[in-house]
């Protein structure tokens, strides 16, 4: 008798969602199997890497290794985004609206939205706008962004239980996408998708952000939630969870101690630049294996590693 490998039985499929508009629009999802299980069925769209830009100069906060590739553009979000696309081949841009944070710069919503608009206009690839998870401020900013970027199919993120009505309504009014964000909790992720569905947000405009824990900082919790969501979507016909997922990777991995200590301060941890890059790349690869359809990344070297990985796996 010949060896028969056990085969997973699938009964569902992740929906396809298209980010952006025009020639460079990006379609994600569509798979009817666990991530990279192409030996069991179709995985039509490879996971994508989105590159992040901040809407404020991050020089004070960032490790030297993270700043090096962008030295000349860090103070100009539009030029930064353009560099990501032209020089590093970014297929999606994420604008992190850090300047809006009421506990930080607290820049006026109109100014924040104007910067976002500049970024959107400076690139031809899809844009995801990532707020600061402050319900009032994000609502203000996202409403303006939804309006000024009409027709661009930008994704508004994070949409949480506390602001889903407001941001959801803005997305409906201008036909934008939303990223439903829940705090590493599978049941709350499902509930938020139900609520957004009740509001009228179409499944074709909805992504899930399960909240990212970086390597050493809760990665395994995020991994489990993504894995469980995938199981529900693909093997239990849970149609509320059949949405593509996004992981905001770089934002988590680059703020941890291990990515920021210099080689001199922590020689036992090895070369500082390599450390930060590997923390980012390993987190991204892990979460893609768990089912992330988009990983948000920062460092071109980390991106190169992950891109090679995807190419080999597909």
């Amino acid at each position: 008798m010949t060896f028969q490998p056990s085969k997973q039985v699938y009964s569902g499929k992740i929906r396809e969602v298209t980010l952006g508009s025009g020639d460079k629009a990006v379609t994600i999802g569509g798979r009817g199997v666990y991530a990279f299980h192409s030996f069991e069925g179709a995985m039509p769209n490879a996971p994508r890497i989105a590159m992040e830009v901040w809407d404020k100069d991050p020089s004070e906060d960032w490790a030297a290794a993270a700043k090096a590739p962008f030295g000349d553009v860090l103070a100009d979000p539009a030029a930064w985004a353009s560099k990501c696309v032209k020089e590093y081949g970014a297929e999606i841009i994420v604008v992190q609206t850090k300047s809006a944070d009421p506990n930080g710069d607290n820049r006026a919503a109109a100014d924040v939205a104007a910067t976002v608009k500049k970024v959107v206009d400076s690139v031809d690839v899809p844009v995801i706008v990532w707020g600061v998870a402050n319900h009032e401020k994000d609502t203000e900013v996202m409403k303006l962004v939804a309006e000024s970027c009409a027709g661009k199919k930008v994704a508004l993120s994070p949409v949480e239980e506390g602001d889903y009505k407001q941001i959801g309504a803005a997305s409906l009014g201008y036909n934008q996408l939303v990223v439903a964000s829940s705090p590493i909790d599978i049941n709350l992720a499902k509930q938020l998708n139900i609520l957004l569905g009740n509001l009228g947000v179409k499944a074709e405009n909805l992504l899930i952000d399960p909240t990212t824990g970086g390597l050493g900082y809760g990665l395994e919790y995020t991994y489990s939630v993504m894995e469980r969501a995938g199981q529900a979507a693909l093997t239990q016909e849970d149609e509320k969870l059949q949405q593509p997922m996004i992981a905001n990777v770089a934002n988590e991995t680059w703020k941890c101690k291990e990515s920021n200590l210099s080689t001199e301060d922590a020689p036992e941890l090895g070369d500082a630049a390599q450390r930060g890059i590997l923390m980012e790349a390993v987190t991204a690869v892990d979460l893609m294996l768990a089912g992330a359809d988009v990983v948000v990344m920062r460092h071109p070297e980390a991106i190169k590693l992950v891109r090679n990985y995807i190419a080999k796996m597909m």
Binding site: I186, N187, L188, K190, Q191, I194, L195, R228, A232, Q236, D238, K240, L241
Partner: peptide, 12 residues
Amino acid sequence: GQALYSDSWLEI
């Protein structure tokens, strides 16, 4: 565990 819990489980 045949369906995932959410607060709206009776409505869907």
